[in-house]
Design a protein around this nucleic acid. Sequence first.
DNA 1: TTGTAGGCGTTATCAA
DNA 2: TTGATAACGCCTACAA
Lengths: 331, 331
Amino acid sequence: MSTIEEIAKQAGVSRSTVSRVINDDPNVNEQTRERVLEVVSSNNYVPNRAARKLAGGRTGVIGLVIPIGVSRLFVEPFFPILIQSVTNRCNHLNRSVMFWLGEPEYERRSITQILSNDLLDGVIVSSLQDKDPIVEALHYSQIPFVLIGRYRDNLPVNFVDIDNEKCTQAAVNYLIQTGRKRIATITGVAGTLVSRERLDAYRSTLAKAGMPVDEKLIAEGGFVEEGGYAAMANIFPHKPDAVFATNDAMAVGAIRYLREQGMRVPEDVAVVGFDDAPFAASYKPALTTISQPIGELGRQAVDMLVKIIDQQPEELMTQVLPSDLIIRESA
Amino acid sequence: MSTIEEIAKQAGVSRSTVSRVINDDPNVNEQTRERVLEVVSSNNYVPNRAARKLAGGRTGVIGLVIPIGVSRLFVEPFFPILIQSVTNRCNHLNRSVMFWLGEPEYERRSITQILSNDLLDGVIVSSLQDKDPIVEALHYSQIPFVLIGRYRDNLPVNFVDIDNEKCTQAAVNYLIQTGRKRIATITGVAGTLVSRERLDAYRSTLAKAGMPVDEKLIAEGGFVEEGGYAAMANIFPHKPDAVFATNDAMAVGAIRYLREQGMRVPEDVAVVGFDDAPFAASYKPALTTISQPIGELGRQAVDMLVKIIDQQPEELMTQVLPSDLIIRESA
DNA sequence: TTGTAGGCGTTATCAA
DNA sequence: TTGATAACGCCTACAA
């Protein structure tokens, strides 16, 4: 645990110079810089984050907030993969991650905890609610933050997102092109932007193909396996020959129901999911799924946040990931 | 963002007194304390963690390290639930969680990052490997830490764990008592303490009941769904009438295989899992599962670590959770 | 290009 | 029971 002082002494310079070197200040003689860097690495010196913060610098700590209840959090593969990619990217960039999951008392305690956490350089939030208190709070605070997934449009925030419309078009068109006539859809959580976007795209894609939209072929599955099962049960009497489930968890539930009814998947009823979840592989060749670049989403969010922290740009940053997505057929 | 200075001014005392109040120092006049506390709460004052750390105090940040690859991390429900319970408990105790997941470069970068992170008061590790570099490193460092799950016995560390032996006995005895004669088992990852413990208990429980142990009825499933499926395929030709899968993910895989073979579960082959995973509910009444107190495990780990941080006890702390577990029949 | 010095918000030591 | 005051390790004007 050496201090900047000791490094300075060993390198024969002042603390200031060492500080400049560590912080990539251009105003340092090249030779001096090298000498200092040598001492730094030979001493295995790492600047004290607390001290650095206190003096006005950054801590290198990024907050990750995922305000979703357990019931969905670890049932949908979306979040685990996201968590994985965000933490990986942060570690890679030599940053640490502070982690908050959703809770009942979320609105009070956690928000205060997050906002008043002076150790944080910035925050990444993956919210799905249309009106999320943490997002609002963050927005009115001065803390740099990036949203994963768009927010209801009246609040200007930095975000990264995937292209729900194009993805949905791909899924539905695939089913149309393979000759399906009665294409159902299982939606996520009502009142959620992501669900609305996918449902809207489902409707418009059918319309564009000149196919009718049968409201009886639309059911809500809440993004979870059991919801997909129940939704399928509602839809089934109306004789679908294909289903677009808006995530893989619900797709699996749908398949379970269909099989219980003696249906062959995909021969009798085709199922397309969304996420390309690892467990979806267990269902090949019954399940075709759209590959969502979740990992990329996490990485981009981190990079964007880091940029915001370091450069404090005036303009908002937004990014919609390219949707050259692959329909992965497991067959 | 008020400082201790401002609070002091408003309360008409010195910084020192305010500091004493916040840190529960008994040497404060009761009236003074109340006055200060009022000002504190009316100003919504929260001590600056960086400054506190620098001055020799704690940051209130706890590290959570889970060195498991993604393939298992989010397939087994064990880890998600653990993460959930640890973070919840920490938030409840007004502490923040810094989070590391396993990575390929795990051994180098992450370890250094964790060990040299001066923001951490202590660390919780859930390791399953028999010889884990992060555990060794932590052990030789001075950082307070608690292990979830026992470590190979030659390294004395603080830990909390569940009673694998008693749990396994309960599972196997349940199958015996319901008249099963050829009870198979699907083990986790070879070379893992938890797997060994459960396998040993499986053997000894059968022996104690005077039943033979058929090695052909033992197969490794790696703790994942597909592994359970494959293991079941290996075991199936040897005509089991029951299977104890050492976690629920593998149990589900086993059920999938059995059904594909036209078996009825549990009529033809009974399956007992382990974890009481949320998704296990989807398989009722086919799946009976042992309820593992994962949430309790996480909570206890946090409490133990906090105690170690605050009181710095000389002796090692260990805790094996009571195993009055319930065999949950979903039927 | 480099060094000096002040201050960031706490806690801890010592006096009062 | 309380109040000064010196660290803690770093960054950042400002001066040289």
